[in-house]
Design a binder for these strands. Structure first.
Lengths: 395, 395
DNA sequence: GCCTCCCTTTAGATCGATCTAAATCGTCTG
DNA sequence: CAGACGATTTAGATCGATCTAAAGGGAGGC
């Protein structure tokens, strides 16, 4: 196969050698008591009842013994089985409490072949849009009984492959991926091959099939474009965004299509690829402003970029909302506090996270019997001042 | 003990009953082949080699058999033990590749009594400061061989107790906590009792001992205050922040102390508690502006609040940077793109996350032998325009 | 040829839970 | 009173790895 699978089947980088090393001094389970006599760890429990250090963990066997029942019965009690007699149940619960027992999901997972763990591989948490999405995911998974294993790819496809592999080793029940922009088309192959339920969110990757939740970028761009047309703008540009990203491509296409329907052409000069930070937005915008007059209206790839652009416009004494109308994308929290407040296409990151999580859970619980599905969320336009509208201030 | 421990020792809410229910139809491991004959799952492997659905997982035993060695030897190969002969090693690796083996950390964890998993319990990811911190944590833990289990408390102490418990059941090796503002003073008790390495980051909680990494809030406030004094401001106010939060209290104290040393008094009118969003900052500020003239200078509890305040000042036609000087806190990314760009106290969230993670790893790997330590990071002041300075524009 | 010693390999116990299949016990039926 | 039955309980196998303690095998020494 391709590069990634070369080392694909060895335990991933975070290796697994025990920290004592091979052939090193054997630690053993012995220690010396005050009396100077070697005792086995098992004997500690009574001796060091309340001492801080690592005492033997209380297991279900201990609980069972304490309650004078079998381990099987104790297990049934914990899982609230209706099979056990009320009397017995109480006794076991009392022992659980008395011994300070903590359920060991790791052991249970091994037997049950499910970990109640879902992986989230995300391209960058620092982006508020993805942070919101992550909150949504967690919010939805938690009550369903899952815990989130988090990994940040920093938009690096190679790192992403490693992380996906690591997740698989951790036996996640399912994996939610906000893919790195330049992901290979078959980067989910290991998951598919192993039958691990997974789905993509936000970013569609060319060539990757399977379930997906994301925004309708075409519609979002049309929404913004139409609003600008309604304002009488003719020259409309798209500004910023990773060059080969599907999002940018779809949006530019949507914008261009709508303009064409109105016998207009997009301002291609301003369709500039870039990363997504506000500082890069600023740098790029000021460079462009030196060479060209600004277009009548600009749709920005993200709110962050819009912030950078607006700052550049202000520095160049271009009146925002009249001389140049600006619309952002994502509707992050600070959009409303800006001055002028930023009109933005909202795709409800949190909701998207929740939907994606819910779909994934469904796939997990039907054990892959569910057919692939794509959920496309229609964005909405949050109208504020930067497009030239007059609206009541934030709050 | 107290409330939380009442149900403390039962498996946490995300219960553990298998989804087939007790007494339900038994699923069994049987299925029918095309020939209509019942076969045991174990026989599938050859039959369904490439079919998508759940086929039996390849285990180390399979690898060992395929390479004609014992399971023990195969295990040694995976862990890169120098004990195995090169020849054997190659053979095993070939089998690993051939069978598509994936290491099962769950099983290994059970035996090794360590999961290579660290929990991160955080008060709210949507706050960019915490998102940055989280990135830092992940960035540091990953190369050290740990994976992050994430949980968001939304600043709810009760939820926080549940999440900590859940983390313990998942056998995390250590836990990093950005505590909810109103956490009980003994909320880490379960961790301490079980000997789970843990530490607090950012937020110090009254009454909680143990390791901690966080900013020097007193110093941060003094930094900002001194800068404003240097600008000639006399009336200086502190604006926003959760009322009982240690951070706000420390900063107000720092500010007040420095003012006192200069025989000045803080503008207590403006020491207003609030949440941390920009919209609440705006709402609060506009209310205040209707009743009082703004003070000469304001230190805001966060950049978000500063954004809200600045918007309110602008709406009231108060010149920012001269009539009212504004300083934010956290130095989030967008601070520089704002207009005027926001002077802010920087506490380097990402660095803090990294430091915290590193300290935690150290505690884990010394198995709790390390003494408690507190690391206090000195913030710095990033000077921009909102305080009245003239600086070169962003980028 | 026999015994050591080192290098390599391995059988079997173990981690802490769940699950199967069967045992136990009191009650009820014919 | 034997046998069936329903309600509980349990012994023992099992999940997939690691770890211990010991075995196997070849070289070298006497």
């Amino acid at each position: 196969m391709h590069g990634a699978s070369m080392m694909a089947y060895r335990p991933s980088a975070q290796t697994i050698a025990p920290d004592m090393g091979f052939g090193g001094v054997r630690r053993g389970q012995e220690s010396r008591t005050l009396a100077g006599q070697a005792v086995r760890c098992r004997d500690w429990i009574g001796l060091l009842a309340t001492s801080g250090a690592r005492r033997r963990r209380v297991t279900l066997t201990d609980v069972a013994a304490h309650a004078s029942v079998s381990r099987a019965t104790a297990s049934l009690v914990l899982r609230e089985s209706p099979l056990v007699a009320e009397n017995t149940r109480q006794r076991v619960l009392a022992s659980v409490e008395a011994l300070g027992y903590v359920y060991n999901r790791g052991a249970a997972s091994l037997r049950m072949r499910r970990t109640n763990t879902v992986g989230l591989v995300i391209s960058g948490l620092a982006n508020p849009f993805f942070a919101d999405l992550t909150e949504g995911v967690e919010e939805e998974l938690r009550p369903a009984g899952y815990v989130v294993l988090l990994a940040n790819t920093f938009d690096d496809p190679v790192h992403q492959d490693t992380l996906i592999r690591s997740m698989m080793e951790h036996q996640i029940d399912g994996l939610l991926i906000v893919a790195a922009v330049d992901s290979e088309s078959d980067f989910v192959a290991p998951l598919r091959d192993m039958g691990v339920p997974h789905m993509l969110a936000t970013r569609r990757i060319r060539g990757v099939e399977g379930s997906y939740v994301g925004p309708d970028d075409d519609a979002g761009a049309r929404l913004a474009t139409q609003h600008l047309l309604d304002h009488g703008a003719r020259q409309i540009a798209y500004f910023g965004g990773p060059e080969h990203g599907v999002a940018r491509i779809d949006r530019v296409a949507g914008m261009a299509a709508l303009l064409e329907e109105n016998t207009l052409e997009p301002e291609l000069t301003w369709t500039v690829p870039s990363r997504v930070s506000s500082s890069e937005g600023y740098a790029l915008a000021s460079k462009l402003l030196k060479r060209h007059p600004p277009p009548e209206a600009v749709i920005c790839h993200s709110d962050a970029i819009a912030f950078g652009l607006m700052r550049a416009l202000r520095d160049a004494d271009v009146e925002i909302g009249s001389a140049c109308r600006v619309i952002g994308y994502d509707d992050i929290e600070h959009a409303q506090a800006w001055s002028p407040s930023l009109t933005s296409v909202s795709v409800a990151a949190r909701t998207m996270g929740r939907r994606a999580a819910r779909m994934l859970v469904e796939r997990i619980e039907t054990r892959g019997a569910a057919p692939d599905e794509s959920l496309v969320l229609r964005p909405s336009l949050v109208v504020r001042e930067s497009c030239g509208c007059t609206v009541s201030p934030p709050g």
